Amino acid sequence: MRMHPIHLRPDVSHIPRYFDARNKREWQGRVSGVSDQGWCGASWAFSTLGVTQDRLSIESLGNESVRLAPQHLISCDRRGQSGCQGGHVDRAWQYLRRIGVVNEECYAYESGRTGQVPVCRIPHNANLFSLRCAAEEQ
């Protein structure tokens, strides 16, 4: 997937006053809904994964539609992150690029019910096969 650069001095004449990705015709059905983070302040994880899921779906023309696991990020990305007490989107992106995350079916979200961050249960160098995670149905 090709990511376009961020322009620090954008041409404001090319930026619409209003934009709703859900209404962009060619993105219909490819943009995630709102997720409830419950009693856990982990918007850094939810927003990062929401953008990632949407980009995968949009770029693959809907062929790659997956719900990524925020609990994986919250519990396992501990480098400069504070779990349910907040975190940094840029560090979450780095974790995604270096390590990746499994799907929601493989690592269910639980911090929203408790406000607690369980210990990471994904071994380093694990993958969906070694974790015995089922692929998500499309």
Rank of each mutant, 00 (worst) to 15 (best):
R67Q: 06
C40L: 15
P10I: 04
Y107S: 05
T52H: 02
N127D: 15
V66P: 00
F129I: 07
Q85L: 14
C76K: 07
L128Y: 03
I15V: 14
S75M: 13
Q81R: 09
C76Y: 13
G87W: 09
G50P: 02
W44V: 05
L68R: 02
R25L: 14
M3Y: 09
G83W: 03
L73W: 09
Q138F: 05
G115T: 09
I58F: 04
L73A: 14
L128A: 14
D77G: 02
I74Y: 12
R9Q: 14
V101S: 01
Q71F: 05
R97V: 13
A45R: 05
S57A: 12
V117H: 03
E26G: 08
R113T: 08
P118H: 06
H72N: 08
A135F: 04
G50S: 12
R78A: 12
A92P: 01
H4C: 13
V117R: 05
R2Y: 08
P16F: 02
R79N: 15
G29R: 06
L56S: 03
Y18Q: 01
R121P: 00
S82L: 14
A42Y: 07
Q94N: 07
M3E: 10
E104W: 02
A108C: 03
G87R: 10
G80Y: 09
M3D: 12
Y95P: 00
I58S: 05
